[in-house]
Simulated scan of single mutants.
Amino acid sequence: MIDSHCHFDFAPFCDDPEHYLALSHQAGVGKIIIPAVGQRNWQAIRDLSARFPNLYFGLGLHPFFSAEHDVNALIQLESELAMEAEQREKKQSHCVAVGECGLDFAIVNADRDQQISLLAAQLQLANRFELPVILHCRKAFPELLRVLRQNMPVAGGVYHGFSGSHQQAVQLIDLGIKIGVGGTITYRRANKTRHTIAALPLGALLLETDAPDMPVAGFQGEPNRPDRLVKVLGELAAIRTESKQEIKQATSLTTAELFRIPI
């Protein structure tokens, strides 16, 4: 399996990455993709992926931390992505996406115009460097859809932590965006999301944990971990018609193809 969204540079993982990678491998999670939050962790995730060959990363400006993104942030992001592109030609880069980026209007006093501007610019950078995007969205779906349609991601992307309606999922899929399936579906009360995920094409789905956030049912109050991706897989198999093995193979292949990583 591939965990398509895990903040592996955060605590507790950063304190003992070998231990948590061993747990992940024992659970059948072979690769992890780490999204950035901003300039402050670009180097940390690059260093982690250099130490551990099964880690990959995205570079981007997370909307939740938009107050930290100064006027030079986009210039620096462009420079970092250009450097990674040169390394990629030499097969020496583990940068596989632009992100985490998106819109978060749930923040108190959110600067919506700034967020929209940053997202549009990052989508354009993703297109320039032919990278998929890792999307975050809270309380801003219509605006996100509009920006996506104005800046169509040529290499696709994933809407992580999806918990919306079937109509919203189809609108994203029509734009070439995959649906990130995480711990939400492990809660029986999340009927809308469970029904939506059960009805979508299997080829549109990726597995994720968002660890250490978005805990799976039964582990509330604890940091989530990438090895608990197996819980997400199990619940996905319980609400769909395909077997666990079919889902594991399909989601792994889809993730590997989207981010162009070896399976």
Rank of each mutant, 00 (worst) to 15 (best):
P142L: 10
F105C: 09
A44G: 03
G38P: 04
A36V: 04
I179N: 03
S79H: 00
P223L: 04
V96T: 05
E89F: 08
N151A: 07
N151R: 01
G157A: 04
R188Y: 10
R149Q: 13
A120R: 07
F219T: 11
Q39C: 09
L144R: 00
Y20P: 06
I261M: 09
L205Q: 03
V133Y: 03
R51K: 15
D16W: 07
K192I: 14
F141Q: 02
C95V: 10
I173L: 06
H195A: 15
V98T: 03
P215A: 06
A120G: 02
G99L: 02
A97M: 00
A198K: 11
L145T: 02
Q43G: 08
V181L: 07
D227P: 04
Q150D: 12
Q150L: 08
G99D: 03
L200G: 08
A97R: 00
W42F: 10
K248N: 13
I263H: 14
A140C: 05
A169W: 01
R112F: 06
D3T: 08
A85V: 04
L206A: 05
E222N: 13
L119Q: 02
Q220P: 01
G38A: 08
N72G: 12
F259L: 03
P142C: 07
K31F: 04
A238N: 13
Q114E: 12
P223G: 05
A217F: 11
M214I: 12
A199P: 10
Y159S: 07
S49W: 01
Q43T: 07
A67H: 14
E78S: 00
C137P: 00
V29R: 04
H69Q: 07
F129S: 10
Q87I: 01
T209W: 08
D113Q: 14
G58F: 03
F219R: 13
Q39F: 01
A169I: 07
A120E: 07
T255S: 10
Y159F: 14
E18K: 12
H25N: 14
I179D: 01
R40Q: 13
Q249L: 15
Q171L: 06
A85I: 02
I263L: 15
P12I: 01
K31N: 09
L81K: 00
A211S: 14
L103Q: 01
I239H: 08
Q220N: 12
R46M: 11
D104G: 04
V108Y: 12
T251W: 01
E246K: 12
